[in-house]
């Protein structure tokens, strides 16, 4: 990925400025990539099937992703595109994935966010909500088994916390004291179902103490707050004290998927959360702190748009898989 010099990947992530600029770069790239996917390529018919984006939730995957070490395991949800960017997956591969081309991470075997890359320690999203929770426990078990200090991060939405797998996975990890950090993006809606119809408790984090897991609530639209919480959580998990849960309060600034106009969401919520857009907020902070100038931020966006244009062009040239690949990969030798 290329960006204007001032916003190149910072070597010193320990300064607030470094973190802010790094975070902005990933959050803005995620937004741009997903806007093109949802609002352009899907509508043009160049992407078929389902499209699920994390509009408005970028601070969560970026805040957590930037606190993870490269050998930590990530189990993303379908609204955590930035985790892939942070691990070095190129936007070209993401567009190719969405368009069913061989240049995508699954070579057209699957679409949209349903991808993973074990060489980058990203476990594929599992479409059945919360199915990743027991899987993350197993990955964490392996990290502990091998005697490493690495941990697993498991991402999910509020809706996922109603499924049995969520509860089984949390309980198993807690009993085994496994190094897992759970990151809930509580965006208030699971498809069209509001929180009030999802659970009778006020917060997802209220569920954690029942499993003996510490939890905290964080402003999910403040990348600094998310990053700090992720560091606390990671410290806890790495110390051998077991899992930790972060509930990031946020809002899905779009429908469940590209075909969903989300008319069930009251206008007041859209208005309220538009003001809390995590990217706008971060830019405001950068300007206030004088970490970068307005023109530099504008150049960053322009650079991202150019890169995304080129990535789409590349992906559209990536061939579709040949039908002869249909039977490949069911077994190790097949």
């Amino acid at each position: 990925m290329s960006a204007p010099a001032v916003l190149q990947p910072e070597t010193d992530m320990h300064t607030d400025r470094g973190l802010a600029l790094q975070a902005l770069r990933y959050m803005a790239t995620m937004r741009e990539v997903e806007d093109r996917i949802e609002r352009k390529l899907y509508r043009q018919g160049k992407i078929v099937g389902g499209v699920y984006v994390g509009r408005g939730q970028e601070a969560i995957s970026v805040g957590v992703g930037l606190s993870a070490t490269p050998d930590d395991v990530l189990c993303p949800s379908h609204r955590d595109l930035a985790l892939f960017l942070i691990r070095g997956v190129d936007p070209r591969q993401i567009f190719a994935q969405y368009m069913g081309r061989v240049g995508g991470l699954t070579r057209g075997k699957d679409g949209n966010m349903h991808m993973g890359d074990i060489s980058r320690r990203i476990v594929s999203i599992i479409s059945a909500m919360a199915a990743s929770v027991p899987v993350a426990a197993g990955a964490a078990l392996a990290l502990k088994y091998r005697g490493t200090q690495n941990i697993a991060y498991c991402f999910f939405g509020d809706g996922a916390t109603s499924r049995g797998d969520w509860h089984e996975g949390l309980n198993f990890a807690a009993v085994q004291k496994l190094p897992v950090v759970y990151v809930c993006n509580n965006n208030q809606y699971a498809y069209s179902t509001p929180l009030t119809k999802q659970m009778a408790c006020a917060n997802v984090s209220d569920r954690a103490p029942g499993y003996g897991i510490p939890a905290e609530i964080v402003d999910g639209n403040d990348v600094f707050a998310v990053h700090r919480a992720a560091q606390r959580a990671a410290g806890h998990a790495r110390s051998g004290a077991g899992p930790y849960l972060i509930e990031c309060k946020t809002f899905r600034m779009t429908g469940h998927s590209a075909h969903d106009a989300a008319e069930y969401v009251p206008q007041s919520l859209w208005d309220e959360w538009k003001e809390k857009d995590p990217i706008t907020r971060l830019e405001k902070k950068i300007l206030e702190k004088r970490w970068a100038k307005r023109e530099e931020i504008a150049r960053l966006h322009a650079g991202i748009r150019q890169e995304v244009d080129a990535a789409i062009e590349w992906a559209e040239k990536s061939p579709y898989p040949d039908a002869s690949e249909l039977l490949d990969g069911v077994y190790e030798r097949s």
Binding site: V73, I118, V123, A131, V133, P134, V135, A136, A137, G138, A139, A140, L141, A142, L143, Y145, R146, A152, G164, D165, E168, G169, N171, F172, V175
Partner: peptide, 17 residues
């Protein structure tokens, strides 16, 4: 624990590693 889905899921996660 009595958690077949956690047993299988954890087995998958560990085997991926």
């Amino acid at each position: 624990p009595i958690s077949e889905s956690a047993i299988v899921g954890a087995a998958i996660g560990a085997s991926l590693m």
